[in-house]
Design a binder for these strands. Structure first.
Lengths: 214, 214
DNA sequence: TGCATATATTAACAGTGTTAATTAATTTTG
DNA sequence: CAAAATTAATTAACACTGTTAATATATGCA
């Protein structure tokens, strides 16, 4: 039954091509502007064909969401070579910020928009969010290692991990939504770095707070 | 010319009624689901009448955005009675979190969505964001007072303020976008508090880090 | 070759924000 | 007071959106 297999392969191909087209449009024009009809035009199929491969638009959003997480995981897992756990934690924070700066659209989809997470809750209430968990697991393990090295003593590991995440996410999302931009302009008397360097600098301030601990 | 004034007043009234209707729908069903046509039906006018009072939909979003900021400012300015600056800073953080929990829709509009800030940038590039700045000014002043009391020494005031903001915003936004929910479920071994108590608990963890400084 | 199945398409529905043209009401002016 | 001008509100329309049902087309199997 080689024919059947070829059809299967074609089907997989088309599904991938849809996602590829969606990603292209989405990176260029954002999620809202990426319509089913535009995706269809991109791959030269009729709009309804998309629905043979993806349940609805949020299904596509979720697929991209997953892609984003494997991109992020790649970057973070590259840091296992940093042996000192606290140094690794800091490096993870910087890598996370850099990811957000390099892929603001993906970041928005992964962490700012509600749609993909709500889709997850509605359609996969069981297994929930394997990609995200793997990333978070890495963070948990690093925090645990930090605790063994004398940092964050007597603190809940998961809570420290969530706090670390909150700090960098707060920085990245306030940057992406251009909240920082507006505020920074009015803080000329404080000699703040500009744009992306500001994020790095605030993160450094956070690190200095943590350094004061041990 | 009392008639002219009455008409002016009527015009102001209708503008306010539109905003009121928009707020009602927006709080109940969210921003996307709040269409111009629904707002119009709510006040029993035709959809195009809205455009005589607001430039476009983002103009309405921005008006609500501003309302949200005066709500937040009310809460934060109620904390000036807390004399110890570091205590006040902590209280501001808790009040900010409570605001996000009490008004998640407003919070989303104010800090998560891009539309109102982009509208601001596009239509009022000069004066930029008076409501937001006043809130941030209060934070800056509190941080400054903390520094005079020996906290955050040798650190950039504005950066410490932005960091403080990032921490609570990170917490609130990851909560609202239900990212924490999915992660927390998989962290049963860490005995985490549930839902909103989790935010308070993580914030407490942050406070413990800061407490270790002075 | 004929039938069944999977695949893709067209047509359509119910919405969306927004603008132009038109009508109704009100105020100002001759 | 009546006519003209201004203002306010409406209807109709455009160009979209996501999505579904009904229809056509091509393919694999007996």
């Amino acid at each position: 039954m080689g024919i059947k297999e070829r059809k299967e392969r074609h089907k997989e191909d088309l599904k991938a091509k849809i996602l590829e087209a969606a990603k292209k449009l989405f990176v260029k024009e954002g999620y809202e502007a990426t319509s089913i009809r535009k995706i269809a035009a991109e791959i030269e199929f009729s709009p309804t064909t998309i629905y043979l491969y993806y349940k609805d638009k949020t299904d596509i959003a979720y697929a991209l969401h997953q892609e984003g997480f494997s991109l992020l995981r790649e970057r973070l897992s590259a840091l296992i070579y940093v042996e000192q756990p606290f140094e690794r934690l800091k490096a993870m924070g910087r890598a996370y910020i850099q990811f957000a700066l390099d892929h603001p659209d993906f970041y928005e989809l992964m962490f700012i928009m509600k749609e993909p997470m709500e889709y997850l809750q509605a359609h996969h209430p069981e297994e929930d969010w394997p990609e995200g968990e793997r990333v978070f697991d890495g963070l948990i393990q690093t925090v645990e290692a930090c605790q063994k090295a004398g940092y964050f003593v007597d603190m809940n590991t998961a809570e420290v991990a969530m706090l670390s995440w909150s700090v960098v996410h707060g920085l990245c999302s306030l940057h992406i939504t251009s909240h920082f931009k507006h505020i920074a302009e009015k803080c000329s008397s404080y000699a703040l770095p500009e744009h992306e360097a500001l994020l790095e600098s605030i993160f450094q301030t956070y690190i200095r707070l943590l350094d004061g601990l041990k």
